[in-house]
Design a protein around this nucleic acid. Structure first.
Lengths: 234, 234
DNA sequence: CGGGCGCGGATTGTATAAAGTTTCGCCTGT
DNA sequence: ACAGGCGAAACTTTATACAATCCGCGCCCG
């Protein structure tokens, strides 16, 4: 008998129906197809995925716990709308955690992982070249997640998944221009450092990469979508 | 995860019935009254709190997301049983995050907060003096949580709540002797550093405090409770 | 003509019932 | 006496029905 099989609630079977819903909605948010503030009706989603409200409800609750969905009592679920303060916290947390993650990744990177990283960079390049902004923004986030998987640190991975999802919303809300979400070149440099197992350099590159992303945001406190007056008067 | 009630009360919980369940179970786990592996039947809990299984279920799902409850498909919910590998990850994450938290706490500590910290230390001392191990272990965890609240960093707070709960289980499973869970003196020194707004010292104290806690654990990979054979043969 | 009030539709929150799965006891056959 | 399988009970999972709440709209009154 297999005693060790522990289906962790964080990584349930992909065949699970509630996971399908959760991942579908998450993907839509990460690809910037669902905008902050969008109402996520239970019946609506249930019809799309052919599931009952019970399952939709648990999926939405999980997403709410991850911080990318806001549930208001008796009003329903909405795509979250992070405030500038939230944004600063998210990026501070990423600047703290991700250097440690690449550090571990340098130790844990097997040839198979390095190969996967290389293929991922190629995918990112391809998406950017063909101008597929949605795929580009999704792949950009998935790069960071992939590094966290390589690190083998499941807690950091869990935290980072949450931070990445929120970052996607933040970038959508607060970026200055139409700058590409994440410089692919930075990612490539990080991979090179990992390949050389140069931990110090990998940490530095990751830190400056995150700093640069945040620098391209406009985090004024009364920025878009917080005060309706600003919209009307603007 | 935060259910926002728009019109009035900012209380994020306590009035909500599912929150009452969640906090009740959490408190029981933090006080070491619920041991790892304990079955948490839905009917059982529902009867205790006078709630239907629907509400119990959502509470258990939230706890599963926090990592202190494990849900096995078609088998039910159990108090989580962290492995030694989990334990190392938890403490590594705490050593990374908590120094940053005290850093912020030094900046954010108002007189009211400092007063609250002082009273908390007194409570810890009192519990330890009267030999109330359950209260002592709970208050010990709550100290770290209180510091995180003072920091004003809601993301760090959320992460740390999770880490503290898991730490409580880890200490219960893997501590060497009957050492008191957390040196109260350490906490008092940290408060002193915060009061002086000595960020560097506060960080150092927190880091060494966490290192010492982990050093008192016995994290051999086949340690207690992983293999049932060990129990039978022991 | 403007603002408050209340009713109807819609949506969420909760409970309960039906369906599926696992577990454990018991029974039979060897 | 023991191994193996059948079956019932208990539990979780899923679906559905019911109750509570909120939003929008029209009506009435000032």
């Amino acid at each position: 008998m297999v005693v060790k099989t522990r289906p962790k609630s964080d990584t349930p079977d992909a065949s699970d129906r509630v996971s399908r819903i959760r991942e579908g909605v998450t993907a839509a948010i990460l690809e910037h197809r669902l905008l902050p503030g969008t109402k996520l009706g239970e019946d609506e989603i249930g019809e799309i995925y052919g599931a009952s409200r019970t399952l939709v409800r648990t999926a939405l609750q999980q997403l709410a716990h991850e911080g990318i969905v806001t549930i208001e009592k008796n009003r329903g679920a909405f795509v979250a709308r992070p405030t500038p303060a939230d944004a600063r916290e998210v990026f501070e947390a990423r600047r703290l955690i991700e250097p440690s993650i690449v550090d571990h990744a340098c130790d844990n990177a097997t040839p198979a992982w390095l190969d996967r990283l290389g293929r991922h960079i190629a995918e990112e390049r391809a998406a950017e070249l063909r101008g597929d902004a949605r795929a580009a923004v999704r792949l950009s986030g998935e790069f960071h997640r992939l590094v966290a998987e390589i690190s083998g640190h499941s807690i950091y991975l869990g935290f980072l998944k949450e931070l990445i999802a929120r970052s996607s919303l933040i970038i959508l809300l607060y970026r200055r221009h139409n700058t590409p979400a994440c410089g692919t070149d930075h990612h490539a440099e990080i991979v090179t450092a990992i390949r050389k197992r140069d931990r110090a350099r990998a940490r530095d590159l990751m830190l400056s990469h995150l700093t640069e992303i945040e620098a391209e945001l406009f985090l004024k406190d009364e920025a878009a979508g917080e005060l309706p007056l600003a919209d009307v008067l603007g």
